[in-house]
Design a protein around this nucleic acid. Structure first.
Lengths: 340, 340
DNA sequence: AGAGTCTTCCAAAGCGCTTTGGTCTTTTTG
DNA sequence: CAAAAAGACCAAAGCGCTTTGGAAGACTCT
């Protein structure tokens, strides 16, 4: 059932039927009702390929997925996706993932824009002066950055969480509890979120005349194994930290294992706070010692990004407004006063 | 730059240029060379929307993503996706995720097929007599099932791993080590993979005259918390199991925690084998007691599914061939002879 | 030499929608 | 009451590609 057939059986022109269906004002309300009714009854759905060709709109949002033999997709991605899906579903938006060589995403971005394959894109895990952000900005496709980049001579729209504030508050709490030697087990410090977390922590320490020494900071991909390695390295030093802030729940699994291997205890010997993106399958309150966290749901962020993308596509949102969501500090059993 | 312009500047018809580019035989080889050369020089890329409208081919594969407030996307998905991306990237295939209400995926399947939004789809986490499989089968779109369904009067193409064999071998090993009371912590037993694992385990036990009692089997969503709960329930019985097979690494984190909470040890009091889908961020060899596993890379499965989908789209693959990949049994420190 | 056969190329008809630029009534306005 | 404005509808021109159904010329065959 296509437009031609439908308009023929209604004894109307394709123009009128099309306009009736798309809510244009220049059609009689009764006619519109008739058309909508008939369309529903016959299950008419405009062919998206045809509509795309005519309008250039696709009803899809895009994401360039970095891939490669040595590239692992972050498990955070799936939670973000859940949120994105929550919103997209109710708006019949589809998401197209375009796999790209992690070292050459530009080609893919250019392709999907040149081909008009999607109406908007989002960018995640940005780095300072991220080339992707500059690129999509010049390409002129609507976009939202999930996270933040820095060091551009232009503004851009983003949705981020207050990583700096979260880690600032976490560190301040630890200092208030008497800790003087703090350490940070961070994610990949080429990414902005990691830089912000470090910055927040340094700021809190500086407020009490403390610093974060080079020996007290690790920056690694967020796996359990790397959490373990980092913790061992930190705790086997001559002057080990008495408190650690950790960028990921998965890493902190490794931290907990290292602490146990070394015969230490949490929070007796070590206070631990980790960032929690709120995974349904791994909860900080269920750690053997319930884990204190800086918390922010990445799933809600996904839904928000989808919402903003939809708004930008339909022209409801414009400009380069960035929004920063607060991060909760949730205190559980894994923090205590400094030992000694 | 479109076909019209290109053909005009070559002083050829659109027909000829199109055919030259698409490798049709009825064009002079020298002409073809000229055309291809000019196309490359001017960066001509056929507009996919137009091509879609004309041919119906989209160059995309589809996946209907179940969503909903209470629906969590499995972290396995992201690993599968990595593999899919690995293959898709090198073939300029995109993946479109169509979010759907988890309780009404049929509408979405019908939509993407009726609209010709994708060339093929894959289905994951199938259940026995899965309606999605029956649906896409009648809808006539090329598809591959990742996993298996059962109880149809037709065959269908699938790529699965030998869940039954893997858990059979695991259970047999435990029995050979003298264990008599085995338990299974399974995933959602409405899904085929869980049924197969249970079946494999029962078969191994039966071979030694043993059985798997109702009290020795748990079936839950695969989260850390559920692993913990299941393990507590099993181990606090009057006649607790001396060995557990567990369907997921994430769940087994909870099992390990429960064992510790109860003051027991692995493998002294309990032998543990879990299924490992090979996540880069959580490795069984790094558990405090290295975990024995049944192992099969879900990422490789993703790449294989993409490959088969591509083959079916281009007509290279036909028929309902199913393939079952072997599962490795990797023995590490978490298994030992039965206590006592 | 005339009839068939290749080879190579083309004009034009879709694919199914949106949108432009009207036309024909009917209503409002000075 | 004539002129202007508004309302309701339509024919046809795209959007940019693929494909159908030739056509013209070069070659082969009897």
């Amino acid at each position: 059932m296509n437009l031609k057939q439908l308009s023929h059986m209604l004894a109307l022109s394709q123009t009128t039927v099309s306009r009736a269906l798309n809510g244009y004002p220049e059609v009689n309300e009764e006619t519109r009702r008739r058309v909508i009714d008939a369309a529903k009854r016959h299950g008419y759905r405009p062919n998206p390929s045809a509509r795309r060709l005519a309008t250039g709109k696709t009803g899809m949002i895009g994401y360039v997925l970095p891939t490669g033999a040595s590239v692992d997709i972050d498990p955070h991605f799936v939670e973000f996706l859940s949120g994105l899906g929550d919103y997209a579903r109710s708006h019949e938006l589809d998401l197209v993932l375009s796999p790209a060589d992690a070292d050459d995403q530009e080609t893919t971005y250019r392709r999907i824009v040149a081909n008009r394959q999607v109406d908007a894109v989002y960018i995640s895990s940005p780095r300072p002066a991220d080339r992707r952000v500059a690129l999509v900005n010049t390409l002129g496709i609507p976009f939202i950055v999930h996270g933040r980049s820095e060091g551009f001579d232009f503004d851009y729209p983003f949705t981020d969480i207050d990583n700096e504030g979260g880690f600032h508050d976490a560190a301040r709490l630890l200092v208030q509890l008497g800790h003087r030697r703090l350490a940070l087990i961070n994610g990949d410090d080429r990414e902005t979120f990691a830089i912000h977390r470090e910055r927040g922590m340094r700021r809190a320490l500086a407020a009490s005349g403390l610093t974060l020494g080079e020996r007290h900071i690790c920056s690694l991909t967020m796996t359990e194994e790397n959490g373990y390695r980092a913790a061992r390295r930190l705790l086997e030093q001559s002057e080990p930290p008495t408190a650690i802030a950790c960028s990921s729940l998965i890493m902190s699994l490794g931290v907990v294992r290292a602490v146990r291997d070394l015969g230490l205890t949490i929070p007796g010997d070590l206070s631990l706070i980790a960032h929690d993106d709120v995974f349904p399958w791994l909860r900080p309150e269920n750690f053997s010692v319930p884990l204190s966290t800086t918390r922010s749901s990445i799933r809600l962020a996904g839904a928000r990004v989808a919402e903003r993308l939809a708004a930008r596509i339909s022209g409801l949102e414009e400009g380069a407004r960035g929004e920063v969501w607060p991060v909760d500090l949730v205190v559980r059993g894994s923090v205590a006063g400094a030992p000694g």
